[in-house]
């Protein structure tokens, strides 16, 4: 029998390795560079809040935030809506070709992205979508489709058929039955999809990096990485501040919605 305090000690040790790098970043983000070189373990000599202003203004974080917010919102609303309606059709309507389409969707669940990298670039180049919002939003919507449709389909299929039948007897058409009666009952799954898509798109780096050569189109992940590669120009303090600015929204959303996050990620993995 392992003692409870021993187990706590082991877990606490890992908690430190998880948390300390993040605390370290926050501490350095408030220091001058000389302070950082001399002493990176302690508290700042003076708190240099100006590092945040420097990062925000000089490294254009305002632009990155606007881009990321817009792209995330559009990919989230678009992606989730697309999955909801398709999930309903797959889960509740019998139609020709349903099985084969389902198999097709499932096959693509584990496609490694290196194989998509170049062709998606060329497709968007030919469509004139490089350096545009649409060029990011389209692939991001596609990225949630296979898993999202699967989750929504099983959520709709799990609802008893009597519900929709009695709604129809009451005079609801197919669309009203879906929208008014069944959709509200699948909201937990919808929330799961929203969380998965939010965290996926907000932090996405690879595609945003390849798709945009124009710095005005950068998302925060790309802008922050570009800034970090010029740390001797901007100074270390602002680079650390940039990392905090990049992570803060995701961390806040995570802390507030922690319960749903855990549920979303495990549901996404286990059922998807």
């Amino acid at each position: 029998m392992i003692k409870r305090s021993w187990m706590t000690a082991v877990v606490a040790l890992f908690a430190i390795t998880s948390l300390y790098p993040l605390i370290w970043v926050v501490l350095q983000s408030l220091k001058t560079d000389t302070d950082f070189f001399a002493n990176q373990w302690g508290l700042p000599e003076r708190f240099i809040w100006g590092n945040y202003a420097t990062a925000w203004e000089q490294a254009n974080f305002a632009t990155y935030y606007a881009n990321t917010g817009l792209v995330t919102l559009a990919s989230l609303v678009g992606g989730v809506a697309v999955c909801i309606v398709a999930g309903y059709a797959f889960g509740k309507i019998r139609f020709r070709g349903r099985r084969s389409l389902q198999v097709l969707f499932a096959l693509v669940l584990f496609v490694p992205s290196p194989v998509l990298l170049l062709p998606v670039f060329f497709i968007n180049r030919d469509l004139g979508l490089l350096n545009t919002y649409a060029g990011m939003i389209g692939p991001y919507i596609a990225s949630i489709v296979p898993m999202g449709v699967l989750l929504m389909q099983s959520s709709f299929a799990g609802l008893p058929n009597e519900l929709s039948e009695s709604a129809k007897i009451d005079g609801c058409g197919e669309w009203r039955t879906f929208y008014r009666i069944l959709l509200p009952l699948t909201l937990p799954t919808v929330a799961t999809l929203c969380i998965l898509q939010f965290i996926g798109v907000w932090s996405e780096y690879m595609w945003a990096f390849i798709s945009n050569t124009n710095p005005k189109m950068y998302t925060i992940a790309v802008g922050m990485a570009q800034m970090a590669s010029k740390k001797y120009v901007y100074g270390f303090g602002p680079v650390f501040a940039g990392m905090v600015i990049t992570s803060i929204v995701v961390i806040l959303v995570y802390v507030v919605l922690q319960k749903y996050f855990v549920q979303a990620l495990s549901e996404g993995a286990v059922k998807g």
């Binding site: 948390l19 780096y205 992940a221 990049t246 995701v250 961390i251 855990v262």
Partner: peptide
């Protein structure tokens, strides 16, 4: 314990 998975991968890489 879950924080390393939440912060953007690009930030982890720079850290």
């Amino acid at each position: 314990l879950f924080l390393p998975y939440i912060i953007p991968l690009a930030v982890s890489a720079v850290i």
